Amino acid sequence: MAENMKKTSPAGGDSEIKPLGKHLGNVIKDIRQQHGLTIAEVAERANISRGMLSKIENGLVSTSLDTLEQLANSLGVTISRLFQGYNQPTGGAQLVKKGQGMEVVRRGTRNGHTYHLLAYDQGPKKLFEPFLITLEDPGEEFPSFEHSGTEFLYMLEGELGYRVGEEVYMLEPGDALTFRGEIPHRPEYHAKLPIRFLAIIHYDTEEPIDHD
């Protein structure tokens, strides 16, 4: 995977710990103990230090999705198992409050280009991913992206020229654009900054590949 969760660890340790980090740490620790494994054993399998694993289990640091995948492999579970049950009340709904979406970094991402993941899959299959995307760098250039499934864009703020295949579509607030993910696509040019839009990817398969 070419994506990371942005670090949010407090400098002095007195700031509020993110709920997702605490959840992941508790799940990793519980699974490790259920398997009768020590911190040293899991850390060695996952190729991280014992101190880092201890901090992860105690919710003191965030870590990359690559590291979470290594930890899941070392524990003999899927990465989705680590997120299972997060923020899911008895009603079966998942609430992500304003500003609390997990910030991730993807291939081609630079300064002024952020993704906030607005929901986290909790089952064995990744069915969809909703992102709030912000573009603020007028000079940023983007590679073309291709992925499985269908993508839906909804413009919230600004104006953006978005290329899908050979066509470039001008998107303004309130506009929606839907296309097949395997068609090469990318933001083509910024017409009016700042730009914010929703990007929702619905997957047809269990294993999506890198996308924008």
Rank of each mutant, 00 (worst) to 15 (best):
A2H: 10
G25C: 05
L95P: 01
Y189V: 12
Q88N: 07
T134N: 01
L118M: 12
V168I: 07
T8A: 11
P184A: 14
R45Q: 14
F142V: 04
N58Q: 15
S15L: 09
Q84V: 01
R196I: 10
E207V: 15
G76S: 04
T178V: 03
V96Y: 05
L198E: 03
T67G: 07
Y169M: 08
L75H: 06
R106K: 03
P130Y: 00
S80T: 04
Y169F: 14
V27K: 02
D121P: 09
F197E: 08
E166Y: 05
D14P: 04
E159M: 04
I79D: 02
F128S: 12
T205Q: 04
T67L: 14
E3V: 15
T78C: 09
T205W: 03
K55E: 11
V164W: 03
P208H: 05
Q122A: 14
I48N: 06
I28M: 13
K55C: 05
I31T: 01
E136H: 05
E182Y: 06
L132T: 07
P89A: 06
G76D: 04
L71Y: 06
L127Y: 15
S148P: 06
E103A: 04
P19H: 13
K18V: 05
L127M: 14
F142S: 02
A93P: 10
N4D: 13
D66Q: 15
F145L: 10
A176K: 10
V104W: 01
N73C: 12
G76K: 06
T63Y: 04
T205I: 12
L65H: 10
R196D: 09
G149Q: 05
P143A: 07
N111Y: 08
T8K: 13
V96I: 10
H211Q: 12
R186C: 09
L132R: 06
I39E: 07
D212T: 11
E206G: 09
N26S: 14
V77S: 07
G174E: 01
H35C: 13
D14M: 15
D121C: 12
K29D: 13
H35R: 15
T205K: 08
E146S: 12
M155R: 00
A199E: 12
N58E: 15
I56V: 08
F197A: 09
D66M: 14
L53S: 11
I17R: 15
K18G: 06
I183D: 00
Q94Y: 03
N4W: 10
Q100H: 09
T205N: 11
D175H: 10
T114G: 00
G101N: 02
S62A: 10
I56N: 07
R163W: 07
Q100I: 04
N58L: 14
I133E: 01
G51I: 00
A40H: 13
V42D: 03
Y169N: 06
E3G: 13
M1W: 10
P138Y: 00
K18W: 10
I133D: 01
S64E: 12
K22I: 01
I28W: 08
M155T: 02
L171C: 12
G13E: 12
A46K: 06
M170P: 09
D175P: 05
E136M: 08
I31G: 08
F83G: 04
G165I: 01
G149Y: 01
